[in-house]
Design a binder for these strands. Structure first.
Lengths: 254, 254
DNA sequence: TTGACCGACATGTCCGGACATCCTAGCATG
DNA sequence: CATGCTAGGATGTCCGGACATGTCGGTCAA
């Protein structure tokens, strides 16, 4: 019942396979620069178009990153996941391991438009703050996520403490403003990195991202905070165990 | 602190945006065929290369699907997620909503190699069975997942009942063979669809997939079942809520 | 009526050329 | 020593051409 596959591969695929093999055999180390397009052309006797298609395949596998003026840099040896985020409890969906930190890279006030108002469940034109941040593993400086964080302008005072002090953003809001999170809505899906985020995280454009969105509401249902984080699939995995049994936890599903 | 963005977009991006707008305004309905490359060339006065790059962008957004001899077909109106899998409890990570069914499309016996042995935590050469299946929403026939399911050859008797009878695969094994699942390891990450899976699910090659792997173990730690499911990001989202409180559930985190 | 074949059409692969844009290293100047 | 500029190198964009491969619908023959 196996599917019959074509035996002959296009030239660009064969080149991509050869280069992928070279990378996996560490002939080009992670961080190293591949030969440029013109050299690959002459070395493999193919057109520049074919070289570019092959490199595009590797970029989409997350193995290389390409930038004008720099060249083609190896970013992974194989498409394995580097950082495994172990979840010890359901609350783990709202926090990251202690060995990673948030780095704020953007902070702007805004009036929410119709689309965003729907996401934030607030009225149009309301004053909110959007904070952009990267998440980095402290040990090896690996970037594992890009976050877009939205909070009401009234809570903007916590932005300064983000990433500078241990603690989750919602906890900062609770501590500083006496708010109380009663419920968190979590959505997990996948996407592709656009150019801006890909560049910030040093991953290829259109590579796979694991996308987690969290909406924090207080007891009256008002949204206190919304964060959306895009993780490079090659560097981040959520992992958890489910056991048969019965016992309580601080957080649990509705 | 906003990032300065280039005002001028490449031509292929402008064309992609125009076509995306046309799709979102339903000028081309889902299922409809876009004009061919040659027509788009003359209509927009760009080279075929530029048309192809623009269409590649849309394909990567999951809005279109392209096949030789057929043309370019609209597959989604916008990159929104169609099927939201609500999780009412942690156990929801192990099951799908009642309105979807498993369709077995492949079934082969195999001897596990070194790589697979590591995944299945069994010895090399052990006899296992690999079942390939699609998951389909019963209401609108939408395909929401491709599953690779591995089970020991000794449990192959349940394959016939898969998709034909309500019930989870692990429950079929428990009922038929008296086995007992004590623990499930779940991994959530993202990936890109390869050609085979993309074709089966009618999504573009290299579009984003949400990938969930489940490894079911008995009390002695032996793996009874492993399933890996790839969901098209545009058609599937996991959603759940976390409440503050304390009470028990049948399944809970370790 | 059904099955096979063929032609038209559509995308996929591959070549070549040219210019634009961006990055970085080296050199010159203060 | 620090800073700024420039040239060379690397990828990105865009054009054009040609042929290959696959799909689908129509026609013809059994």
């Amino acid at each position: 019942m196996s599917v019959n596959r074509s035996k002959s591969q296009p030239r660009y695929r064969r080149l991509a396979d050869a280069l992928q093999r070279a990378i996996s055999e560490a002939r080009y180390a992670v961080g190293a620069t591949l030969p440029g397009e013109l050299e690959l052309m002459s070395r493999y006797r193919v057109s520049r178009h074919t070289v570019r298609e092959a490199l595009r395949c590797l970029a989409e596998l997350g193995l290389i990153s390409r930038n004008r003026g720099v060249g083609t840099v190896v970013t992974a040896r194989d498409p394995s996941n580097a950082h495994v985020q172990q979840l010890a409890s359901p609350a783990g969906w709202m926090r990251y391991s202690e060995d990673s930190r948030l780095e704020v890279i953007g902070n702007e006030a805004l009036r929410v438009d119709a689309v965003l108002a729907r996401r934030l469940d607030c009225r149009r034109g309301a004053p909110w703050r959007r904070v952009t941040a990267l998440r980095r593993v402290t040990a090896d400086r690996a970037l594992i996520g890009w976050s877009d964080i939205y909070l009401p302008e009234a809570y903007a005072g916590v932005v300064g403490a983000m990433g500078r002090r241990a603690g989750r953003v919602y906890e900062l809001i609770e501590a500083r403003f006496g708010a109380r999170v009663a419920r968190v809505e979590v959505q997990v899906t996948a996407g592709l990195f656009d150019a801006e985020r890909a560049k910030a995280l040093a991953v290829p454009v259109n590579s796979a991202s694991l996308c987690v969105t969290r909406r924090y509401r207080d007891a009256s249902g008002q949204v206190l905070l919304l964060s959306q984080t895009h993780h490079p699939a090659e560097r981040f995995t959520y992992a958890f165990e489910l056991l048969r049994g019965g016992d309580g936890a601080a957080w649990l599903a509705a």
